[in-house]
Amino acid sequence: MTTQATPDMKQMGDELYKHWERAMGSWWDQVLETPAFLGAMGQNLEAMAGARGHYEKAVDEAAERMHLPSRSDVVRVAKVASMLEERLLQQEDLVLGLKDQMVRLEREAVQARIEAAEARIELRETLADIRAQLGGLSAGAPVASALAPAAAAPPAPSAPRSAKPRAR
């Protein structure tokens, strides 16, 4: 007796199965949407939750009678541990936030110092230019017309040094 179906038989079996699958699918579609099924499903879920609650209560009572820590005792301790961990992480959040703020402030302070130093250098260079031109004047050289703009418009101290051309 052979155990292998012929290709035709296999094809026919597959076709039959597909028909069955489609028919069952549409039957289930109808059943699953009926109020009776949905109501029963809801009741089943509620009953399962209720039964679980009763079971846990019974286990707790049994443990208590034997002077053993009950499930709810253990859960309570674990909850306290979880809450403590959350509190610790909240503190960590705060510390990290403060650290971010400090880094930002530090960056701003360093930037301000760099800008102030740049302004001082600019000023020193302008003074050196003026001195050089004054030296030229005292030596009898013709008056440099470039003296006027350098004296009239000193560089703004807050502008970054690299951003503007030097007045020579």
């Binding site: 699953l32 949407e33 949905l38 499903m41 809801g42 879920l45 509620e46 939750a49």
Partner: peptide
């Protein structure tokens, strides 16, 4: 559809 009419407090 399954959960629309469910009593969430009990379930």
């Amino acid at each position: 559809s399954f959960v629309t009419s469910l009593d969430t407090t009990t379930a």
